[in-house]
């Protein structure tokens, strides 16, 4: 007699079934080395007598126990497919640059809504965007797309934060002093030109690129030996540092 039955969800059950099936195939392949006439599983179908339950969030199942009547039937069919078919029909998950939805700091409710739409990563979301689908409308306005897009940008920016490697004082062709800031990942989005403030006064940016910035200095910037330099490269990045001039 089995132990008391427990609730399980379909994904975990199928995962376990697939793992068992894979192990069986491996064992049978080894057996075939010495025993040429060996059989391997081609297809497997399983009919389960179960009782489903819905907790308002997900559906779980419990297998019927002896003597229980009125159970529902679930039929699961697993077929074998080749490596090539797997590659053609499966989206590679866990790619280096692919960010999971839960990693970008969206709330649980939005995560669940997105998962129901088949969106589990930022890459999935981009695929949907490419098809010109209005996520906000599809989710009955439950997903605030603007907030979501901002969180994605913020998360991406966190993965490539700006790094300041050196700051030096130079003069340009017109003998005007400027701060030459060098580093990495400064301006990543052309929509947002950098904005700089030196000692609480806005400073003009003469030239910028992802790895350098030239900030024109005026008299009001050079009131003390030490200056506070603030640089923003987009809405998600702010660099604040003290420099000695």
């Amino acid at each position: 007699m089995a132990n008391e039955n427990q609730y399980w969800n379909l994904e975990d059950f199928v995962d376990s079934l697939v793992v068992e099936l894979d192990k069986t195939r491996e064992t049978l392949a080894i057996k075939a080395i010495n025993k040429p006439l060996t059989y391997t599983v081609k297809d497997l179908a399983i009919d389960l007598n179960i009782f489903p339950t819905f907790d308002g969030d997900q559906i779980r199942f419990i297998t019927a126990q002896p003597g229980q009547e009125g159970a529902s039937k679930v039929n699961i069919q697993l077929g074998s497919i080749t490596d090539q078919q797997v590659r053609a029909t499966t989206k590679m998950s866990g790619l280096k640059n692919d960010t999971k939805i839960e990693e970008i700091g969206v709330d649980q409710k939005t995560q669940k809504k997105l998962r129901k739409l088949g969106v589990s990563s930022v890459d999935d979301l981009q695929q949907v965007e490419k098809k010109q689908v209005d996520i906000q409308r599809v989710s009955d306005n439950e997903i605030d797309y603007k907030t979501l897009a901002n969180q994605i940008q913020k998360s991406r920016r966190n993965q490539t934060p700006p790094k300041v490697k050196a700051v030096s004082l130079s003069v340009d062709d017109q003998q005007r002093p400027y701060l030459h800031v060098r580093g990495e990942n400064f301006t990543m989005d052309p929509r947002y030109p950098p904005v700089t403030v030196v000692n609480n006064n806005l400073a003009e940016v003469l030239d910028y690129s992802p790895d350098e910035l030239k900030i024109l200095l005026q008299k009001n910037h050079l009131t003390t030996n030490e200056a506070e330099l603030i640089m923003t490269f987009d809405p998600y990045t702010l660099v604040k540092m003290n420099i000695r001039i």
Partner: peptide
């Protein structure tokens, strides 16, 4: 119930 279709390896 379970149905397994197997073939020669």
């Amino acid at each position: 119930s379970i149905t397994i279709k197997a073939e020669k390896y």
